[in-house]
């Protein structure tokens, strides 16, 4: 647009952008190289450039580490975008698909498919989407009256998550013979993610990223308040509805791939906002990159910290995210 040269934010965004991409590259390489078997950078280069290396390393990189890291990155993007959109349209700094119950809705629907209809794995994302929408509608109905009081939304989300979680636990008990892997899934884990999972998530990430980048202009106008937005000719209700659908879609695709991975959508938009400001045209793409970096690094940490044991990435995110949530809550109560 205009005046980029004089805009004091320009340099900051440029630097943050370069830093974020650098961090992403390093994170990707580091995450692929580290694990139960450490791989030298030279071997990695050989695998990627020449498509050859000693057979074992090639297998580890191409069939175990790379898909896992990429799935982590995509899931990070989806969750961060979902959180950024929800925080914006609900004008609630604590909004996150995990906290307000959208992930639990997606999770229950996905679990029903996994346990009761294991042959129809292709139905996972659409079912999770339906579950996420259902949860979003319930939350809107209970806790949203045009302004969505911060704590009311969170409390309703906690209650809804607990309620849906009870169904999930019931399922795991009743069908305990079919639930290997669900423990990891409930915690949000990337272990064993393959190219199939990648192809399952990828289309949603692409659609979600395009939708969010397009939606950023609307989010900016909504940030001025519903009255101003309406005065400027925006169909506020329709736009909010579509953006909620988008946020639910993004969260649902993440949940159907890796399970209940929380806090990414809460933390990332906040940190990104601190770094580059609240303009959604920048906040959205930067949140996507930082979301990917965070999940990839958290997963690597989960693999390395107690090696040979592996912590699911969701547990690492909870270690980091829950205190952050409490910090935001305390700050919100004081102000």
């Amino acid at each position: 647009m205009k005046g980029l040269a004089v805009d004091p934010d320009y340099r900051r965004r440029l630097l943050t952008g370069v830093g974020a991409l650098l961090l992403l590259t390093i994170g990707l390489l580091f995450s692929i190289a580290k694990g139960s078997v450490d791989i030298a950078l030279a071997d990695l280069v050989k695998v990627f450039l020449a498509g050859e290396s000693s057979e074992g390393i090639y297998q580890v990189v191409m069939n175990i580490r790379l898909p896992r890291v990429l799935v982590g990155g995509l899931v990070g993007i989806n969750l961060a975008l979902s959180g950024a959109i929800l925080q914006s349209i609900l004008k609630n700094p604590l909004a996150d698909p995990g906290i307000i119950g959208i992930s639990a809705g997606a999770g229950l629907a996905a679990m029903v498919i996994m346990i009761l209809f294991p042959a129809h794995a292709a139905l996972l994302p659409p079912a999770a989407f339906a579950g996420a929408i259902g949860a979003a509608l319930i939350i809107y109905y209970i806790a949203y009256d045009g302004s969505a009081h911060t704590l009311r939304l969170v409390l309703a989300g906690v209650a809804l998550s607990a309620f849906l979680g009870a169904f999930m636990s019931t399922l795991t008990v009743l069908y305990s013979d079919r639930v290997q892997g669900t423990v990891n899934w409930m915690a949000g884990a990337l272990i064993g993610k393959s190219w199939t999972h990648l192809y399952m998530v990828l289309p949603y990430t692409v659609v979600g990223l395009i939708g969010a980048v397009v939606g950023a202009r609307y989010l900016n106008i909504l940030a001025l308040g519903d009255d101003i937005a309406r005065g400027l000719g925006l169909s506020v209700e329709r736009v909010k509805f579509l953006l909620t659908l988008l946020a639910a879609l993004l969260a649902a695709s993440a949940v159907s791939a890796v399970g209940l991975l929380g806090f990414v959508g809460l933390i990332i938009p906040h940190i990104t906002r601190l770094l580059i400001g609240s303009d959604n045209r920048f906040l959205i793409p930067f949140s996507a990159v930082f979301g990917a970096v965070t999940v990839i690094l958290a997963d690597t940490a989960g693999r390395l910290l107690f090696s040979p044991y592996e912590l699911p990435v969701g547990i690492i995110m909870a270690f980091v995210g829950a205190p952050f949530f409490l910090y935001l809550l305390a700050r919100g109560i004081k102000s």
């Binding site: 805009d7 940030a223 400027l232 000719g233």
Partner: peptide, 26 residues
């Protein structure tokens, strides 16, 4: 038709020229 409600709020880090430019939206 333009309408300015009572004490509207905007993100604190929004530059003035960007706020004014939103007026061109329609």
């Amino acid at each position: 038709l333009g309408i300015l409600p009572q004490s509207p709020t905007a993100p604190a880090d929004l530059p003035v020229h960007c706020l004014v430019a939103f007026g061109r939206t329609p």
